[in-house]
């Protein structure tokens, strides 16, 4: 047999062995898109609320203080922490989800897309993940399609030191997400 015939028949048969559940994935894509719009709307609304709060603080503070004293800058979050890029981390097995053990790669992309590469042993859904950063806080819907389904977004305090990124859970009811994101020091990966 020629290599061309062998490749055509072998590749066709191998390709057809993949039979994704298109309806489930389509629904997931639409839901992810809706969440992305919601996250964007939430970030914008959050920014407006923060700006309005800062204005109120300044007005009230200014009213009660010495009118001749210089106005101090409000202690509102400044620019969002820059976390775009690829980070890798070694995650230990969790008592409830031992298959998370291994090397994870998080790629925070522009536009709020978080591409996650899980260890080969992990079988959960890690596609269509989103994130948003506001100030020093990052919100994400990682695992919202299976392990954290129906739970609120996870909120994490972000600390970037050199090539290290630390994510500390501020408010996340999903233990699996905390176990993966918060239990390791993420290092910039090539």
């Amino acid at each position: 047999m020629s290599v061309d015939e062998r490749l055509r028949s072998g590749l066709v048969r191998n390709a057809r062995s993949l039979d994704p559940d298109v309806e489930v994935l389509l629904e997931s894509a639409l839901a992810t898109h809706r969440r992305a719009l919601w996250l964007r709307w939430g970030a914008a609304a959050g920014g407006l609320v923060a700006a309005a709060s800062a204005a109120i603080v300044l007005v009230i503070g200014g009213w009660g203080s010495d009118r001749d004293a210089p106005v101090l800058p409000a202690k509102t979050p400044t620019a969002s922490v820059a976390i775009q890029g690829r980070y890798a981390g070694q995650v230990a097995a969790l008592p409830t989800v031992p298959e998370v053990a291994g090397r994870w790669v998080l790629e925070f992309k522009a536009g709020g897309v978080l591409t996650v590469t899980a260890p080969p042993t992990y079988s959960g859904v890690v596609s269509g993940v989103l994130y948003a950063v506001q100030g020093q806080e990052m919100r994400t819907d990682l695992f919202s399609q299976d392990r954290c389904a129906g739970q609120p977004l996870g909120r994490y305090a972000v600390t970037r030191t050199g090539s290290q990124l630390a994510l500390m859970a501020v408010d996340d009811p999903c233990a699996a997400r905390v176990g993966v994101l918060g239990a390791t020091a993420w290092t910039v990966a090539p």
Partner: peptide, 25 residues
């Protein structure tokens, strides 16, 4: 289009899960 794209990606990456993720992205 999804299945066809996912199958092409599968032949390139060699992993069903990764292929579905990439096609979904």
């Amino acid at each position: 289009g999804f299945t066809s794209v996912a199958r092409t990606v599968f032949l390139i990456v060699g992993s069903r899960a990764v292929a579905e993720e990439i096609a979904q992205d």
